[in-house]
Write a protein that binds this DNA or RNA. Structure first.
Length: 542
RNA sequence: GCGCCUGUAGCUCAGUUGGAUAGAGCAUUAGCUUCCGAAGCUAAAGGUCAGAAGUUCAAAUCUUCUCAGGCGCUCCA
C-alpha cells in the first residue's frame, strides 16, 4: 500500500510540476504521532516549497486535488503541508488472515547475498568459571549469531581459548599451591575459590593413579618432568573449559569450535604472521623488543623473547580474515582501546578492514532491589553465571540481557527478573501468549468460521491490527540491524495492547465474533514468533 | 591529557530516515471482579530532552563547544 501511494504521488508530481527526479525525493513515512489519525504521510510539499516558490499548504492541496480517488484510503492535508493517508480499517484488517496463513513470518529479512560469517564471543580466559560479567556478551553474541542465521548467512560460532601464557601459568601455580603451600611463595594474586580446590583434588588423584612418586614441586620446577607438567596443565585447563562449556550449554549456547591459542603457536602461525608484518616495514626493534609501529609502538615480542597477547591475537585475526567473508567479534567495552591496534595491524597485513566488525558491549550491573550485586573477581567471591541462571531462569536471562542496546549500560534487577507479575516484562509477554491460548482452547472449531474484515471495528482492534502490521518492519530493524532490543520492546508493546483489549472486550460470549478470535490467534502467532527469535519460550500455560 | 559509550518524568528506559501536541514501566494518587486467568485493566499527576550556539520550513534526533557519569589508554590478557 505504501508503494502504491508513493507511485501515485510521483505520478501526480510529474503531471503537475513536471518533476523528473520525483522518484528520488518522494518519501512516504509511517505516521507515529498518536494525535494524528493517519497511517502514512509525506512531507513532499515542504521539501518543494523553496524550489517552487509556493507555500507548502498550497502545494499539498494542489497535489491532493489531482490524486485519483481510491476506496482503500482517504487523503487529507494538515498544516503546515503534510499530506496524510488514512487507510480504510477493514482493508488493514486483512493483515490478520495474512499472518495466520503465512508459513514463515520472517521471510522479509532473508538475504540474497549469503556470507560466510564467524562470530567470536565469550572467549573468557579459562582460569575460572563464567561469572555474571560474562553473561551479557554471551547472550548477545548468541543472538547476533542467530539473527545472522535467520537472514540466511552461514554462521560459525567460535570461542577463542587463551590457553597460553602467563595467566595459565598462574592458574597452574594456584592449583599446585593447594597441594604444597610453599609453591605460592613469590606469587601474588593467585586464583582462589572452590573450583581451585576441586581441581587440585583432581590433580592429586591423577598423580596417584599414574603412580608418580614425585613431589608436586618437582613437577613444576624440574625440567625432566616437563611432560608431566604439560599433562597436568591440560587437565587443569580442560576441567575449567568443561565447566564453562557446561554453563553455556545450560544457557542454550553451543559453539561450533573452541579455538585454542596454543594451536597458533604449534602451527607457527604467530611467527609467520610476524614475519609478514616485518616485510611491510611497519615493525621496529626497540629496547630489545619487537614492536608494531602504530601511533604508538606496540610490543609484539618482549625483550625476554615472550610473545604478547597482541602478537597471537593478530595471528588469530589474520586467520579469521582469510577464512571468512565477515568477521564479528563481541568484546567487552573495556577492550575498546585495543580495537584500533588490531585494525591497524590487520590493515598492514593487507586485509580489508570493512570485513571486520567489533561489537563492544557495555557493562551490566546487577541489582537485588536497590542493592548492587558485587561482581568482584577477587578471592572467588563473584556471582557465577550458573547461580544467576538457577535464580532467574533462562527466559529472564535472555530477555534482560537483550532488552537494552549494547551501547547502553544495563541495570538488571534480579528481584524484578524473578517476579511473576506485570513488573516483569518476560512474564507479561508470556502471559499474553498463555491467555490467548486459554481462549483459543475454548473455541477449538473457530477455523470453521470465516474471518470477515468488516467485523473488527473498535479502536483497540485497530491499534492491535496496526501493531501486527508493524511486525515485518520491526523484524527488519531488529534482525537486519542486529538490534535485539527492538524486538523486546515491540513484544512488550504488543502485549500491553493485548492485555488492555482482553480486559475490556469479552471474546467468549453467546454470539462469538469469530473475527476477534482470528485476531487473537494472529497476535499469539506473532508473539510466539517474536519470542522464538530472541530465544524465549512461549508457554501455553503458566 | 587523549579515545570510546552514555545523559529524555522522582527511578529504569523507548523515541525509526530530522516531521505534527514528547512515550512506556516503576513509584505516587484515585478507581475497576456475579463474566475468557486481577499473574490483569483504567485514569490522574509528573518534562529547561544535561547546557549553549549552529544547520533546517522543521532538531531529543545532525554539527561544534561546555558540563556530568562509566570505561580504557602496561614489554597485562
Amino acid at each position: 500500500m505504501k508503494d502504491h501511494i508513493k507511485k501515485e504521488i510521483i505520478k501526480v508530481l510529474k503531471e503537475i510540476y513536471n518533476l523528473s527526479d520525483a522518484e528520488d525525493i518522494v518519501e512516504i513515512q509511517k505516521t507515529s504521532n498518536k494525535h494524528v489519525s493517519s497511517d502514512y504521510f509525506t512531507n513532499i510539499s515542504m521539501k518543494l516549497a523553496k524550489t517552487l516558490g509556493e507555500k507548502p499548504n498550497q502545494i499539498a492541496e494542489t497535489i491532493v486535488a489531482s490524486i485519483d480517488s481510491d476506496k482503500n484510503y482517504k487523503v487529507w492535508v494538515a498544516k503546515p503541508g503534510y499530506i496524510n493517508f488514512t487507510l480504510n480499517q477493514s482493508v488493514k484488517n486483512n493483515i490478520v488472515p495474512e499472518i495466520l496463513k503465512s508459513t514463515n513470518l520472517l521471510t522479509s529479512v532473508e538475504t540474497k547475498n549469503v556470507k560466510n560469517i564467524i562470530v567470536e564471543f565469550v572467549s573468557a580466559n579459562p582460569t575460572g568459571p563464567l561469572h555474571v560479567g560474562h553473561g551479557r556478551g554471551a547472550i548477545y553474541g548468541n543472538i547476533i549469531s542467530k539473527y545472522l542465521e535467520i537472514q540466511g548467512h552461514k554462521v560459525h560460532k567460535e570461542y577463542y581459548v587463551n590457553d597460553f601464557g602467563n595467566q595459565i601459568n598462574k592458574l597452574v601455580i594456584s592449583v599446585f599451591s593447594k597441594i604444597d603451600k610453599s609453591i605460592a611463595q613469590g606469587y601474588s594474586e593467585l586464583y582462589e575459590g572452590n573450583y581451585i580446590n576441586d581441581i587440585s583434588d583432581k590433580i592429586q588423584e591423577f598423580i596417584k593413579n599414574k603412580g608418580w612418586s614425585i613431589t608436586i614441586k618437582s613437577i613444576l620446577e624440574n625440567n625432566e618432568h616437563s611432560k608431566k607438567l604439560e599433562a597436568c596443565r591440560k587437565i587443569i585447563v580442560n576441567s575449567i573449559l568443561e565447566n564453562i562449556r557446561d554453563s553455556l550449554g545450560k544457557l542454550g549456547i553451543v559453539f561450533d569450535d573452541w579455538f585454542s591459542e596454543s594451536m597458533l603457536f604449534e602451527g607457527n602461525l604467530v611467527d609467520k604472521t610476524i614475519a609478514r608484518l616485518k616485510e611491510t616495514g611497519k615493525t621496529i626493534k626497540k629496547d630489545g623488543a619487537l614492536m608494531f609501529n602504530d601511533d604508538e609502538p606496540r610490543v609484539l615480542i618482549k625483550s625476554n623473547g615472550e610473545y604478547t597477547y597482541f602478537a597471537s591475537d593478530l595471528a588469530y585475526h589474520d586467520k579469521k580474515m582469510r577464512e571468512f567473508d565477515r568477521v564479528i567479534n563481541i568484546w567487552g567495552a573495556d577492550h575498546h582501546g585495543y580495537v584500533n591496534r588490531v585494525c591497524k595491524g590487520l590493515e598492514s597485513l593487507g586485509h580489508d578492514i570493512d570485513k571486520l566488525d567489533i561489537h563492544l558491549i557495555q557493562f551490566a550491573n546487577l541489582y537485588r532491589g536497590k542493592e548492587k550485586v558485587s561482581m568482584s573477581t577477587r578471592k572467588g567471591e563473584f556471582v557465577k553465571l550458573d547461580t544467576l541462571l538457577q535464580e532467574i531462569g533462562i527466559d529472564a536471562i535472555n530477555y534482560f540481557y537483550l532488552m537494552r542496546s549494547k551501547d547502553q549500560h544495563l541495570d538488571f534487577d534480579l528481584e524484578v527478573a524473578v517476579s511473576s507479575n506485570k513488573n516483569n516484562p518476560v512474564y507479561y509477554i508470556q502471559y499474553a501468549h498463555a491467555r490467548i491460548e486459554k481462549i483459543l482452547s475454548q473455541v477449538p472449531n473457530y477455523e470453521e468460521f470465516e474471518f470477515d474484515h468488516k467485523n473488527l471495528k473498535n479502536k483497540q482492534e485497530g491499534d492491535l491490527v496496526d501493531q501486527l502490521a508493524n511486525f515485518s518492519d520491526i523484524c527488519k530493524k531488529s534482525i537486519i540491524n542486529l538490534k535485539p532490543q527492538i524486538m523486546t520492546n515491540y513484544l512488550y508493546d504488543l502485549s500491553q495492547l493485548f492485555h488492555g483489549y482482553y480486559a475490556s472486550e469479552r471474546i467468549i460470549k453467546d454470539e462469538i465474533n469469530y473475527s476477534q478470535v482470528y485476531l487473537l490467534a494472529a497476535i499469539q502467532k506473532v508473539v510466539k514468533c517474536g519470542l522464538e527469535t530472541i530465544n524465549i519460550q512461549a508457554p501455553k500455560e503458566m
